[in-house]
Design a protein around this nucleic acid. Structure first.
Lengths: 239, 239
DNA sequence: TGAGGTTCTGGTCAAGCTGACCTTTAGATT
DNA sequence: AATCTAAAGGTCAGCTTGACCAGAACCTCA
């Protein structure tokens, strides 16, 4: 309680890391990129990609760099957003490590890329990573669960769902994103009405795409809007 | 890009701090608690209260401790929530400092308390702290602006507005919270309909309170609900 | 006592959004 | 030509919202 505590305080040096929850949709399933740890602690365990922050970069910059190192994808094409910080003592047995978790969303990303430091990385269904006995390193199971809920809520209040689609895309493809991430089907007609009438969500290209069957679908690009008002709410009550 | 970079990495030791944006409503104005810095850097400047994280506490624990040290208020009575992390290089001239910002909301809090380390702390109108030439230390102006927008959005989607009210409180008092934080008046009748019909927002006490003038108002406690669905949206379009 | 002021509380009504459901359109396939 | 499939568009009841009005319950002052 001394007057100096707040000002000087205890400058316990800590490590700061950035961890990435990289979501993509592959094979009609929400998948997350996991890497296999080669060193202790948690050697052999799967973990979220991430790494130590460097002394000359921003948090966002560290996240961008890690993302590029892990996926080889230029960040310009991805949605990247800070989730929150995690810093429980004991979350890393080596000592005090505070991590800032980032959420990255992208369309069907390439398989883990050669030429990066991801020796052993793979896409894993989020459901498998959370439900089954797959033990994630550190507190990454908590971070992943938070990220999943965060992504689900973002689909309600923002237009980020389009970040999962390769441009140009159809309304049905966008609807599949919602259905896969939320885990239940949506009415195609009502969904179309909502997204097409929301100013700035979709931008018509004028083109259409033929599928194997059915009427050709109109193609769209992402619009400029980020917020989705009024939101497109999930319905918990109905089950 | 070596294989060891991600695993071993550069363990640049950094300092981790927790900064608090403590909002309360005093004199019908949204106010934030600021402390005057006694040491360099930014000596003499006003800053958000905060301090270094200790090696044996959680992030939330550090925020709770700082909050108690600054206000003397037991955290049980306050809403405390992590906002996000800030870590630009150069945000602290002493070196690399990553801070995790917390948002604390409470009813008419006491004036800065004796017996704490807040030698010179005071409540300041948020508008003054942001608009005028009051230069806040570090990047605290950015954090404060983010916190204000965060609080405004939380009023739309959650029931935290009640955290600003002393129990028991009236619907009008709750409405004043919205009006002060959003900055425009709301229709009393429609507001009442919304909050009273939202399951779990308010809990009637059966009591009523006489005011200097007008019909006595029914008194309520906070209900158990945290989410406010459908949300109570601000209207940007109308101005 | 009664008039007028103030605030709380409740009601009406049109407009907008949503969910459920149906119909039409435009292609491929048989 | 008939059928299949999925896109696209329409209808309609129900709910929520914003604007607005009316009554209720206190006060004060004449």
């Amino acid at each position: 309680m001394s007057a100096t505590r707040r000002t000087i305080g205890h400058k316990e040096p800590m490590s700061v890391t950035v961890d990435l929850v990289i979501f993509t949709i592959r094979d009609d399933v929400l998948q997350v990129l996991l890497v296999e740890r080669g060193n202790e602690p948690f050697a052999g365990c799967w973990a979220l990609p991430g790494g130590y922050m460097r002394s000359n970069e921003t948090l966002d910059g560290a996240a961008r760099r890690e993302l590029y190192e892990e996926t080889g994808v230029d960040v310009g094409r991805l949605h990247l957003e800070q989730l929150r910080a995690y810093g429980d003592p004991g979350r890393d047995p080596r000592g005090r490590v505070v991590t800032v978790a980032y959420l990255a969303l992208g369309p069907d990303l390439p398989a883990p890329v050669a030429g990066t430091d991801a020796r052993s990385a793979r896409w894993t269904a989020v459901a498998s990573a959370l439900d089954s006995g797959m033990e994630l390193a550190f507190d990454h199971a908590v971070i992943l669960a938070d990220a999943l809920e965060g992504a689900r809520r973002r689909l309600e209040y923002t237009t980020v769902a389009a970040a999962f689609c390769v441009e140009p895309f159809t309304v049905s493809e966008l609807r599949r994103v919602y259905e896969i991430i939320w885990g239940f089907p949506l009415d195609p007609s009502n969904f179309r009405r909502k997204v097409t009438r929301t100013e700035g969500f979709l931008e018509a290209t004028g083109e259409r795409r033929m599928l194997e069957s059915g009427r050709p679908a109109a193609l769209y690009r992402r619009g400029g809007a980020e917020a989705l008002v009024p939101p497109l709410l999930r319905h918990f009550s109905d089950g």
